[in-house]
């Protein structure tokens, strides 16, 4: 392409909110997004639109029609295609200079440290709670900050940053797996937290019929576009904070929680926990 727009022209309107030094930090930062679905997809788009030029996208999934209601990288024309490959194509259309590494596999205990080692910030955008433990354990071991997100019916969500010096993931979210080898049995117990979240969500206004069907394995997690997108946007703002490191703009580190509930007031709040941890079944 001959008329490639300059970096400065694309990000001109960031100036004033961000300094040139901060913009340069974003340009050089390496961000890894694990899972480019409802939250990871919009977060990856936001990273590119803020001026991040190095991304690693990890996702073994393909797009299906029920992604269209909220996943910003999904279109009728790319159903059946790899989410990671489509992310690369769409992100490069936004800024052709962006360097994107893709991994079309899921994260596992075996590959996690290898896949996550060469990066500055990790977004955990997976929907499997065992994968999440693997991601945050690897990030902690590698000394890399990671961002946790949650999207919960009907209108709830959360964002939390973890670093080697903040409260570790499994402690902040009261996991039985804390300090133990992640065996198949423990993975099952971690995954079962999601069933409890489905049950609790009924008390917050999710349809009881949906929760029953979810527990029987007949329905997938219920999630609407505004909530998934708000969580992704807030996560991208945390990533920006982790990259620019402005002294008066602290990331929301564990055990603090950036809490979203569009059906309550405040709709977004930064909450602290008295005992330094959260009951994940209620998030």
């Amino acid at each position: 392409m001959n008329n490639l727009p300059s970096y400065e022209a694309i990000f001109d309107r960031n100036y004033g909110v961000l300094t040139l030094e901060e913009q340069e930090k974003l340009r050089k930062a390496r961000v890894t997004v694990v899972g480019v679905g409802g939250v990871g997809g919009i977060t990856a788009i936001q990273c590119v639109r803020m001026g991040i030029e190095n991304l690693h996208i990890i996702d073994g999934d393909l797009f299906v029609p029920s992604n269209l209601n909220r996943q910003m990288l999904s279109f009728v024309g790319n159903l059946g295609r790899s989410k990671a490959e489509e992310a690369e194509r769409i992100l490069k259309d936004i800024n052709p200079r962006v360097k994107i590494k893709i991994t079309t596999d899921f994260i596992t205990k075996e590959n996690a440290e290898d896949l996550l080692s060469q990066t500055d910030v990790i977004l955990d955008g997976t929907d499997n709670l065992a994968f999440r433990v693997i991601v945050h354990r690897a990030a902690y071991k590698l000394g890399i900050p990671s961002v946790w997100i949650a999207v919960t019916p009907p209108f709830r969500g959360g964002v939390m940053c973890l670093s080697p010096t903040s409260v570790p993931y499994e402690k902040a979210l009261k996991h039985l797996s804390l300090g133990k080898e992640l065996t198949d049995e423990l993975e099952k117990q971690v995954i079962a937290i999601k069933d409890e979240r489905a049950k609790f969500s009924v008390s917050k206004g999710a349809l009881a019929d949906w929760a029953d069907k979810y527990l029987r394995g007949e329905k997938a997690w219920a999630v609407i576009s505004p909530v998934a997108n708000i969580v992704g946007l807030l996560a991208s703002f945390e990533i920006m904070k982790l990259v620019i490191r402005r002294p008066d703009l602290e990331p929301v580190y564990s055990p603090q929680l950036l809490h979203v509930d569009m059906a309550s007031n405040p709709m977004v709040s930064i909450q602290t926990s008295s005992d330094g941890s959260w009951d994940y079944t209620k998030l």
């Binding site: 029609p65 029920s66 269209l68 209601n69 019916p153 999710a206 349809l207 929760a211 219920a222």
Partner: peptide, 14 residues
């Protein structure tokens, strides 16, 4: 197509 596309909305909305 419509109901497949929006099926994950159901549970939040009826």
């Amino acid at each position: 197509f419509y109901w497949e596309m929006v099926k994950r909305n159901i549970g939040v909305y009826t």
